[in-house]
């Protein structure tokens, strides 16, 4: 049940969507759903490792907004020197990745080395990044230079063989994440730490380093998601990435990863992300229920997922 539950839910959603709207399975709509899932999805893959290792990161939404703002500022500032072209895009990408890794390392350092609760640390950094991006934008919106935006657009809207870049990057992240989680030492170590930190320590698993790596990896993936996100709107503001952290955590939990840690599956997280964005999509395509109730429906699904998880555990 715990294995099939999310898959069944996804299939049901697809059937419901198809029944309600004939355009649901059209290539355009599927591409749309997947591309919009990509940001949360990429972050949720990282979140899967953090949660599996017994941690949590509430700061990813604010972090994404901050990185987006930083990226835009740096690229705008470098425009007179580098001009519009591939180098300036690469510069922006490097800035995003470095900032993401640094932010993740900072969270991880405070949590592992200083031993502060993950919830508290990331609650704090969530506020800090949100405030920083508001400050950088002076309360308004940071916009990428128009010429740059036009040049950068294909990173979100373009693709190869009709598959857009965000979907390709999402897919690659998932494949690497799944292998890392289920077949690599790193994933095994994360599960061991989340399952029982003491046992991991006594078994020569470097608990702090592994945990730190999960946060750094999540930070890096937030950077990757931001690289995909910035060309979509070409701007960043205080409302960028709001509630992304909750959507990412929800996707992880719906996918069958245990919130307390000790067991995680990346493919489940993908299902979780798809379930969440498909609900959103179905509500937008049909007028059965107001799209404004999207949050309520997602909330019910999250709670249901955890109840099912608990019952599966009680049985097993």
């Amino acid at each position: 049940m715990s294995v099939l539950g999310p898959v069944i839910a996804l299939v049901v959603l697809i059937l419901v969507g198809t029944a309600l709207n004939s355009n649901f399975l059209s290539a355009a709509n599927i591409t749309n759903v997947l591309a919009r899932s990509a940001f949360i999805g990429i972050i949720a893959v990282g979140m899967t490792f953090v949660i599996t290792a017994g941690g949590l990161d509430l700061s990813v939404g604010s972090m994404a907004a901050f990185i987006a703002g930083l990226m835009i500022l740096v690229m705008n500032a470098a425009l007179p020197v580098l001009g519009v072209g591939i180098p300036i895009i690469l510069l922006g990408m490097v800035v995003a990745l470095v900032a993401g890794i640094a932010a993740g390392l900072l969270n991880g350092f405070l949590i592992t080395t200083l031993g502060i609760e993950a919830f508290i640390v990331t609650l704090g950094s969530m506020g800090i990044y949100r405030s920083l991006v508001t400050w950088l934008a002076d309360g308004g919106t940071l916009s990428l230079d128009f010429g740059l935006r036009t040049f950068y657009r294909p990173v979100y809207f373009g693709g190869i063989f009709g598959v857009s870049w965000p979907i390709i990057v999402f897919a690659l992240t998932v494949i690497v994440g799944e292998v890392l989680m289920s077949r690599a030492r790193f994933g095994r170590h994360c599960a061991a730490i989340g399952s029982n930190e003491n046992v991991a320590h006594y078994s020569n698993v470097n608990v702090n380093r592994t945990r730190l790596l999960t946060y750094a990896m999540l930070g890096m993936l937030v950077g990757v998601a931001t690289i995909m996100y910035v060309p979509r709107l070409g701007s960043a503001s205080a409302s960028t990435g709001v509630l992304w952290e909750l959507e990412a955590i929800a996707a992880v939990i719906i996918g069958g990863t245990i919130l307390k840690g000790g067991f995680g599956r990346v493919w489940g997280t993908v299902i979780g992300v798809l379930i969440l964005s498909m609900i959103d999509n179905i509500l937008n395509l049909t007028d059965l229920v107001s799209p404004y109730l999207n949050g309520a429906i997602q909330g019910v699904i999250i709670i249901l997922a955890v109840i099912l998880q608990r019952e599966a555990k009680a049985k097993g």
């Binding site: 599960a191 061991a192 399952s195 029982n196 003491n198 046992v199 006594y202």
Partner: peptide, 9 residues
């Protein structure tokens, strides 16, 4: 039980 084995695995 607490330091030796992962009881859930």
């Amino acid at each position: 039980k607490l330091r030796g084995l992962l009881l859930d695995k």
